[in-house]
Amino acid sequence: MRVSDEDRIRWDDRYGQGDPPSDDDVALPAAFRPYADLFPHSGAALDVACGRGVLSVWLALRGLTVRGIDVSGVAIGAARALALRHAVAPRCRFDTVDLDGGLPAGDPVDLLCCIRFRDRALYPQMMERLAPGGLLAISVLSEVGGTPGDFRARPGELTEAFGALKVLATGESNGEAWLLAQRG
């Protein structure tokens, strides 16, 4: 069994438990709420590791056309159902994608989001996928205010990795690191 197969099974199990997302869950993640006015109202967005699609649906409600990708077919099913419930299914496309092979091919996007998923090998691809003026919103688990571990960013990792972009805002605390940056 490949690592991604193990991940898929683990995440399918996790997303298969519990209640589906509520209407209150459809929102911009807390770290980015003070910067909501920087998020575009139109164009194309890619939501990497989209989970149940709460951010994707928020973006579609805002006016973007969104492609959400995740390793879990269960999460993708929930994301599709959420988009239908909010009447934005025509603006959303959700696909099960093995990110071990990198980001799927596609056109440049005006917004790329990656919330609570960290794969340093994808960082260069994320920057390349942004259209000129495109916005990157990324949030990962962090060692800052948290415990060290394989899935946590070291202090300054996001700023260093995405230094070629214009950093608009960043933060590290309470076990989370986040960055909002724009391609010149």
Score class of each variant (00 low, 15 high):
residue 105 A to W: 11
residue 173 S to N: 15
residue 22 S to M: 06
residue 175 G to Y: 00
residue 85 R to D: 12
residue 18 G to A: 06
residue 59 L to V: 11
residue 137 A to W: 00
residue 45 A to S: 04
residue 16 G to R: 11
residue 118 R to Y: 01
residue 88 V to D: 02
residue 106 G to A: 00
residue 150 D to R: 11
residue 115 I to W: 00
residue 105 A to Q: 06
residue 38 L to W: 13
residue 26 V to Y: 06
residue 146 G to S: 03
residue 126 M to T: 05
residue 116 R to V: 11
residue 115 I to G: 01
residue 19 D to M: 14
residue 157 E to A: 10
residue 46 L to A: 13
residue 121 A to I: 12
residue 9 I to C: 12
residue 27 A to N: 01
residue 24 D to F: 14
residue 21 P to C: 14
residue 93 R to F: 09
residue 170 T to V: 14
residue 80 R to Q: 10
residue 3 V to N: 14
residue 24 D to C: 09
residue 183 R to F: 09
residue 9 I to D: 15
residue 128 E to G: 13
residue 24 D to G: 12
residue 134 G to A: 10
residue 10 R to Y: 14
residue 149 G to W: 09
residue 39 F to W: 15
residue 156 G to N: 05
residue 4 S to K: 05
residue 60 A to I: 02
residue 10 R to G: 12
residue 91 R to P: 03
residue 91 R to W: 13
residue 93 R to T: 15
residue 114 C to I: 00
residue 126 M to C: 13
residue 89 A to R: 14
residue 58 W to A: 01
residue 160 E to R: 15
residue 74 V to P: 05
residue 88 V to T: 03
residue 36 A to G: 05
residue 171 G to S: 10
residue 44 A to L: 15
residue 38 L to I: 05
residue 58 W to T: 01
residue 5 D to W: 02
residue 70 D to V: 08
residue 153 A to N: 06
residue 111 L to W: 09
residue 67 R to G: 10
residue 97 V to S: 04
residue 53 G to N: 07
residue 173 S to M: 07
residue 106 G to P: 08
residue 143 E to Y: 03
residue 2 R to C: 07
residue 162 F to Y: 05
residue 142 S to H: 02
residue 183 R to N: 14
residue 29 P to T: 04
residue 93 R to A: 12
residue 8 R to P: 06
residue 37 D to I: 14
residue 130 L to G: 04
